[in-house]
Design a protein around this nucleic acid. Structure first.
Length: 272
DNA sequence: TTAATCACCTGAGGGC
DNA sequence: TGCCCTCAGGTGATTA
């Protein structure tokens, strides 16, 4: 399940293989993703050069001269570098074939992902213009988090998973960051002190940086551009460890639902 | 403006 | 063995 570290791992994995190359052919086998894949990209893209691959939150942005492809991996999506000779796997929905034969293959079992085309400035794009800051940027810090939290009475876990507050923090890393910060996931955001917001911002940055170094987390679906899993799962302290002893105090990890998402915490280490 | 809920989708796993 | 149900989760849309 791709969160920011998985998307960044994916971006770093595919960019060297496709940047500077020209699209030769686009093969769309299944256009029914989160939003219908614009079929016109099969005619628009051939001949265009892919200048670079960026990331904004969990969106991958493939830049060409007239416009950009926006890719989202959703819940189960992955991109891998391959060739046309390689047999198709189940749920291989789209092939981006480049002029040297390299193929960027989009696979998405649950089809929550997206492939979109835009020629408008990214700063005004409806999917991007309301996104919060990047968690690893200087703009995202304790003071920013505190100012945003003061206006919200929702559970802090739901708060930090809101991409309009900060991008890229999904369920796994929200659980892990709150555990590291010693903050109960049900605490109201507007009840956090400035010091707690400082600690939480640092925890989010630390968790995400560690996960990127490990190549992301593989629970079920995630594979990197070479089809290999990430290794951060082995570092998870509370996520998916219900009833197991807390790594800090030994108390059993508890599991509850918050906003329909499984949430894991230590009731002794994380103060409510 | 904020918060809560729904919908989308597929496959694994459990119960019968 | 096969059927049915539940669960997993990112995020935009809808509703209150």
């Amino acid at each position: 399940m791709p969160e920011l570290p998985e998307v960044e791992t994916c971006r770093a994995g595919i960019a060297p293989h496709i940047s500077g190359k020209a699209f030769q052919r686009i093969i769309i086998r299944e256009p029914r993703l989160r939003w219908p894949v614009p079929l016109q990209i099969a005619e628009l893209l051939p001949g265009l050069t892919l200048h670079r691959v960026d990331r904004r939150g969990k969106y991958l942005i493939l830049h060409t001269e007239p416009g950009c492809l926006l890719l989202h991996l959703g819940m189960s999506g992955n991109l891998r570098i391959t060739s046309q000779e390689q047999p198709l796997a189940k749920h291989d929905h789209i092939d981006f074939v480049f002029n040297d034969g390299t193929v960027l293959r989009f696979n998405d079992q649950r089809r929550f992902g997206a492939v979109l085309w835009t020629t408008e400035p990214l700063a005004t794009h409806a999917l991007l213009n309301k996104l919060g800051p990047e968690p690893l940027s200087a703009e995202f810090n304790g003071e920013y988090l505190y100012q945003q939290a003061r206006k919200r009475g929702i559970a802090v876990k739901t708060f930090i998973m809101n991409s309009h507050i900060v991008v890229g923090v999904g369920n796994i890393y929200a659980n892990e960051a709150l555990f590291m910060a010693g903050i109960h996931p049900l605490r109201a955001a507007n009840q956090l002190s400035q010091a707690e917001c400082e600690t939480l911002a640092i925890s989010i940055k630390t968790i995400l940086e560690q996960a990127i170094k490990q190549g992301g987390t593989t629970l079920r679906d995630f594979l990197n551009a070479q089809g290999k899993p990430g290794y951060f799962q082995q570092k998870l302290q509370v996520y998916s460890h219900a009833a197991e002893p807390c790594p800090k105090c030994g108390q059993p990890i508890e599991q509850i639902k918050i906003a329909q998402r499984s949430s894991f915490f230590c009731a002794r280490c994380q103060l409510q």
